[in-house]
């Protein structure tokens, strides 16, 4: 990244999404705000159920009933997507912002050939003929390093491996060189070797196109390798955001700190039990007072303020870009620094 901050290409403000369930409204995304600059790579981390995927769909405006985005703004290239008509959104989705989903095995239509599924992504947004679209599609398949791309074009999804299908999905997402790519757990369904290859591929193709990426994952190692900025989500809220080095080495939120120590590494003492956060994530159908993490928090479990007062996002140490939703962010930061070798 350069020293001069480029202008934001995607700005999310106060985005909230609810799902209607038998037990009432479940608020999966709570007042999420962030900015993504041109070419930036933002990692969104959290355990399952923390609202990461719901956030991705909310940004794209693809929340389906019983879900509903109830508040917020999503500014992309100077327009608030939340105020646009469905017809205009269809012209923006896939062109200026696109997405790669978790499971490549179900992401392609099983009764249609690979080629047309990719080529239609081009013809939907660009005024090109069939032959030109096919040519462009084959070049894209070559770009994502599929062997014999012209042959792949004629294949059905079930004839390709999971890793190959995810390459196809990446080609689909990048067909119109979008400004923003949302990668929602793009490697979770793949084996470890394939994971590394797919992440290298994403790294290469977004670099070539200058695409800004939102990488949604629960995998801290991926974030450490790939992202410039990290945003940690818990119970639908962003709890900490900062540059990668800041969060990885000196987290100022107890939840981020707990996520970090729960990841085993080669240096981890194998005799010692893996450390994990005790308890369960809060029930999102019920409104809570105080900090959402309080019942599970090492710092706040016993503190009255954590139980009664909901913490706001506050700058951690001087740097306004590093924020934490913790009453005792400074204390946690010092604690992390002491315990991290």
């Amino acid at each position: 990244m350069t020293d001069v901050e480029p202008e934001p290409v995607l700005t999310v403000r106060g985005l909230s999404t609810e799902y209607a369930t038998d037990r009432g409204q479940v608020r999966a995304v709570r007042d999420v705000s962030f900015e993504l600059r041109r070419g930036e790579r933002l990692g969104i981390v959290g355990e399952s159920g923390s609202g990461k995927s719901a956030l991705a769909l909310s940004i794209l405006g693809l929340i389906e009933p019983p879900g509903r985005t109830v508040a917020g703004e999503v500014w992309l290239n100077g327009r608030d997507l939340r105020t646009l008509s469905e017809a205009r959104l269809n012209r923006i989705r896939g062109k200026e912002i696109s997405v790669v989903f978790q499971d490549p095995l179900t992401a392609l239509n099983p009764v249609r050939r690979i080629g047309p599924q990719l080529a239609e992504a081009i013809t939907m947004h660009q005024d090109v003929g069939r032959a030109a679209a096919k040519q462009a599609a084959i070049e894209l398949l070559d770009d994502v390093e599929l062997p014999r791309p012209a042959d792949c074009y004629r294949r059905y999804p079930h004839e390709l491996s999971g890793g190959m299908r995810q390459r196809v999905m990446i080609a689909v997402a990048l067909a119109n060189a979008p400004d923003v790519l949302i990668a929602d757990e793009p490697t979770t369904a793949l084996d470890v070797t394939t994971q590394a290859q797919i992440m290298r591929l994403i790294d290469k193709v977004v670099d070539e196109r200058g695409t800004a990426v939102v990488l949604i994952t629960h995998n801290m190692d991926l974030v450490a390798d790939f992202c410039d900025t990290v945003q940690v989500m818990y119970a639908g809220q962003v709890v900490e955001r900062g540059r990668r080095e800041q969060l990885l080495s000196g987290s100022a939120h107890p939840y981020t700190a707990a996520l970090m120590v729960s990841v085993p590494s080669l240096d981890t003492d194998r005799a010692a039990p893996l450390r994990s956060l005790e308890g369960l994530p809060p029930d999102l159908a019920v409104e809570h007072t105080g900090c959402a993490l309080a019942p599970r928090c090492v710092l706040g479990r016993e503190r009255e303020r954590c139980r009664s007062e909901s913490p706001a996002m506050t700058a951690v140490v001087g740097d306004a870009a590093w924020v934490s939703r913790c009453h005792f962010a400074g204390e946690q930061h010092r604690l992390t620094m002491e315990t991290t070798p």
Binding site: R93, F101, P110, M169
Partner: peptide, 11 residues
Amino acid sequence: PYALVARSKGR
């Protein structure tokens, strides 16, 4: 998911 993918393509 492929229906969602189709929507995300702009369909």
